[in-house]
Design a protein around this nucleic acid. Structure first.
Lengths: 223, 223
DNA sequence: TAATCTGAAATTGTCGGACAATCCATCTGT
DNA sequence: ACAGATGGATTGTCCGACAATTTCAGATTA
């Protein structure tokens, strides 16, 4: 029986890959920080080749940037880059929401989507940043999965949502309630099977997010 | 003076990377073909580590697929995958066209766009598949560049347009004229600075492409 | 003192070798 | 003909080595 492992689950490079992404969310690594290969080799107890492979994967996804003969660094989004990314996410998430709405009736989709939304809306999960981040990721991932567009699913992780999440984490305490209403709106539209409506709901949500980020002070942007 | 090299231009892995992409367009590699590391090491005269890094980059972009303990293979799009990809490209290209139209007045954008379109429309370049493919790539790349959305530019090459281009190359002789009209429509809308119009023109073009592909026989799809 | 130059240390880029794990095709015995 | 054993081919991973380049502290100079 051949092992069916996804690209991220496999061996040593995967350990490093996941370790770094996880470390990002846990605050062990912060945007701008240098990632020295020798250190990673020691920390994760794998060969330099594996470290290298993990780094180049992360670079391909845009999470770290690699300059020739310089250490890789955790990428830090500038104001302009953030704006670009938000504009792109508006389009992509709108597309994903529309697809999800169109397929809500198939299989166990409705049940899965409901589950993801329920845990996201649970005040219990909202107490802890890590729990909330995970629930939100699950929500979006479910939405994309239900949409069943293989290529979209492949491309989504290659946007830098994670960076946005982490880089502005300190500033997100403002309007939690408003955002929860957004999520509810998106979910309801998807549950209704209203593709158009879901698309605009998702787009509007991202646009509001972009507006909020625009108002952030320069200190929130590293480079 | 620090060398300013882009991710694809750098050293040995870049040689392999570009060699394979180029080989794809030249027909040296065909979808489904196995890529044995030892062979590539010999052909490109670089270390296995570099070959490995190039392969994982290509895998990250979706051009080759890597299975555990099996050779990497040039990916072959199934009918469903192609449909998904086309639907995604419709959204992304629409976005790119809109952005380009909105910024056509800035700097040398108008001139560059006109140039790209002119060489694309030149009957001379349309005679040879390789020339035409290159001109079309330039056309789209210019459009994206003018749009000036850094994240979109980063993400576009990670779609599998190249695969579509190559895999269905044998079947594209049908409606060249119709497609040239499409390009003209897109270009005109961009030149007018009409964002909405450019978006729908690009979307319609991709949709027509998708319809054409839908009518292709099963033989066109490998896996 | 401040700016500049210099050289050593740190770090990455690349290669080659080595070995285990696994897959694949072939062979073998029934 | 078919199930299982077997060996070659290929990948996954690590290690060591060396050149190229950057980085930084200390020496030199205006």
């Amino acid at each position: 029986m051949p092992k069916t492992l996804t690209a991220k689950t496999d061996g040593s490079p995967g350990v490093v890959y996941r370790g770094i992404v996880d470390g990002l969310y846990r605050g062990r690594y912060v945007p701008g920080q240098r990632l020295v290969e020798a250190d990673l080799t020691r920390d994760f107890e794998v060969g330099r080749g594996s470290v290298r492979e993990a780094l180049s994967r992360l670079a391909a996804e845009g999470l770290v940037s690699m300059n020739l003969h310089r250490s890789a660094t955790i990428r830090s989004l500038s104001r302009a880059e953030t704006r670009d990314l938000v504009a792109l996410l508006e389009v992509l998430n709108g597309f994903a929401a529309r697809l999800a709405a169109e397929r809500i009736e198939e299989g166990v989709n409705r049940k899965q989507m409901a589950e993801a939304y329920t845990t996201l809306a649970d005040p219990e999960t909202q107490r802890d940043f890590l729990h909330f981040a995970r629930a939100r990721n699950t929500f979006y991932k479910t939405m994309v999965a239900i949409g069943a567009n293989h290529e979209l699913a492949r491309l989504m992780p290659r946007t830098n949502v994670d960076l946005i999440r982490v880089q502005f984490r300190a500033y997100t305490t403002v309007d939690d309630d408003l955002r929860m209403e957004d999520y509810r709106g998106i979910y309801d539209a998807i549950a209704e099977g209203a593709g158009r409506k879901a698309e605009t709901a998702a787009k509007n949500h991202i646009r509001r997010l972009g507006d909020a980020i625009d108002k952030l002070p320069d200190a929130a942007f590293g480079g």
